[in-house]
Design a protein around this nucleic acid. Structure first.
Lengths: 122, 122
DNA sequence: TGAACATATGAACAGTTAATCATATGAAAG
DNA sequence: CTTTCATATGATTAACTGTTCATATGTTCA
């Protein structure tokens, strides 16, 4: 009877508030979206990357300037910039020997500021 | 010879755009704030936690309901709920044997939606 | 062309993290 | 009080992440 529906060993079907669960199910994001979203926040979840994003939020900066701003090696900055670029959070342009990085879109700043509000208002 | 000013081995002081760096420096967040912010996003940077937050964004849910909604064990959910609670993203209340979780404030939803916009508009 | 410089990249290693399993806690009902 | 059930917690382990070091790429200038 309970047969072929293998269950995840939790709360054996009894405590479930069916309606609540159904409504939540309606509201669920597609698995792929959830992963993309988590990946986005994962990228934001590193202090070095936050610093970089903040730094270039006013105006574009070359790698060397960014590295000199913090006590972080050029290599580390470069690795992080790649991560940020893969996440489409920053864009770059070359000018001679230098490569300048800037925020890729305004969302980035919005998200960070929203985060700041959460932090600052406890 | 190059003496006491040990340098972080980058871009030996020459390529620096002084003014740009200065302006960025003005705009810098306090170290502690940066860490808190990174921690916040770190917490958001996990698909299981995103799912949980989304699920309880409509109305509070008990642990058991949340676990039944996804194919995730009760233990895993419980661990994640603790992480979310430590980050002040959710709050809980007990009612008999059940414990109900809800979003701790509106920021949470705002941040997630902002993230969604970034994702969806490429 | 080659030297000097800005940036990128790969490998390696240490530190962190999320799931699982087993077990503990704490409320309720008999 | 003992059992049952919902939830929490600790230990363990596998996977992942960020930095460092060494080196490569690609641009400029002599």
């Amino acid at each position: 009877m309970f047969g072929d529906k293998e269950n995840i060993s939790t709360c054996d079907d009894f405590c479930i508030h069916e309606e609540v669960v159904q409504r939540a199910k309606q509201n669920m994001l597609k698995e792929e979206i959830v992963y993309d979203l988590a990946d986005l926040f994962k990228v934001l979840g590193d202090s070095t990357r936050i610093k970089i994003l903040r730094a270039i939020s006013l105006e574009e900066m070359c790698v060397c300037d960014i590295a000199s701003l913090f006590a972080i090696s050029q290599s580390a900055i470069s690795h992080q910039l790649r991560t940020l670029k893969n996440a489409r959070l920053v864009k770059s342009r070359r000018d001679g020997k230098n490569i300048y990085y800037a925020l890729d879109d305004e969302h980035v700043d919005l998200i960070i500021n929203q985060g700041l509000e959460h932090i600052l208002h406890q």
